[in-house]
Design a protein around this nucleic acid. Structure first.
Lengths: 125, 125
DNA sequence: AGGATACTTGACGCTTACGTCAAGGTAAGG
DNA sequence: CCTTACCTTGACGTAAGCGTCAAGTATCCT
């Protein structure tokens, strides 16, 4: 129950990243694990954020871009002053995502066609 | 009609990349412009490949991965010995693309939800 | 002929995203 | 107490993907 927190090794194993990567993300303020003495403990919030980070990376976003997106996901009530600006950049990102989604569909279509062609060629040998 | 070929400047302008980038891609064997004297002339094949390169980049593929994918797209009859291997890596890439397509759909859903929430918050101020 | 312009090839610089030591702290087991 | 194991913070190294000179060449204009 109260193994809510993961140490750096468990966190790395679970999400297939190295400890170095986790420290790097903390240095870049993408994650903010709490401390038990000097050791890091990663919370559920950190885990949720890490999933989003890794997803962002798969879509070719830079870490700095991802950091800004992350802000949108955990505004708990506090910094609503920034909400307006964050909302606008979020809108922008959404458009980007939609555009890529369409483009990705095309890429899939194209590659499928190429593979079909290749398959046909292979059978004629 | 027979301005089939673009020089490095025209090519860069048309696809919004710098001359440096084009030379870099040539060095990495992603493009292979012909030469008129010492000057590069980019063919239609180069243009098609550049489009694919840029698309690949938007999806977070490394240049080296892109290079391998490109091979699949212009096998005109010659290197069919490699076709088998290329076909397999192509299959792999297709799976990756499909997975990302699905994931991207989820990302869009999530972000849309967050933005809806943010919008609601904004109106209550 | 003499710029001005646009191309070329190095070669070094820079940012991103980590990898890889080095040197040391700390908690657990024998 | 000593070892083992895992953590920590620097600090330097590196590959990718270009940017940015530097120095030379070729073409066009006047």
């Amino acid at each position: 129950m109260t193994d809510e927190y993961l140490n750096i090794r468990q966190m790395g194993d679970r999400y297939e990243v190295t400890a170095r990567t986790l420290r790097f993300y903390e240095a870049k303020e993408l994650l903010s694990p709490i401390r038990e003495g000097q050791k890091r403990l990663f919370t559920r919030r950190d885990q949720a954020r890490l999933k989003l980070i890794l997803r962002g990376k798969r879509f070719g976003f830079a870490l700095e871009e991802i950091r800004q997106l992350l802000d949108l996901y955990d505004m708990g009530d506090q910094q609503k002053t920034q909400l307006g600006a964050t909302y606008e950049t979020g809108k922008g990102h959404l458009e980007t995502l939609k555009a890529r989604h369409g483009e990705l569909g095309e890429a899939i279509k194209d590659l499928t066609a190429q593979l079909d062609w290749a398959e046909k060629e292979l059978t004629t040998l």
